[in-house]
Amino acid sequence: MTDSQSPTKTLTNILLVEDNPADIRLTQEAFKEANQNTILHVVRDGAEALEFLRQTGRFTAVPRPDMILLDLNLPKKDGRQVLAEIKKTPDIKRIPIVILTNSKAAEDIRQTYEHHANSYITKPANLDEFMTVIKQIEQFWLSIVQLP
């Protein structure tokens, strides 16, 4: 990341909402390969995700993330609910949300866009493809796109 769009910001905060440790680690590895300036915050379920964003509970000292990677199948509150609640909350609804999931189901795709997901990506099975996808997500949402 060149950080040319926001020179004052040295570190980018990304919130990963994912329950599977293998997936968490894989995403961390992908970000490690992609960019040194990214801090990946991880929460394991939907309820924690909302607490993190509202900076409540044990998340009073966390930063406001620049982007959210959201899995759909989560314990407690599932990804679809989390998405809907975020997009209803004024302070945080502008944070870009990328759905990163196993599901290819047309219904999931349709429904999440209806709830204003910013993009929907099915996790590729191939590692190289996965690495590329993570890299491109970061590049697109944090470098190419102009956000308010």
Partner: peptide, 20 residues
């Protein structure tokens, strides 16, 4: 088939990570 995809993807990904 939907739920089988996930562990399979993990297997593929980590073998490839090992290989890499």
């Amino acid at each position: 088939s939907h739920d089988l995809q996930e562990p399979l993807r993990i297997v593929v990904s980590y073998v490839q990570l090992l290989q890499r």
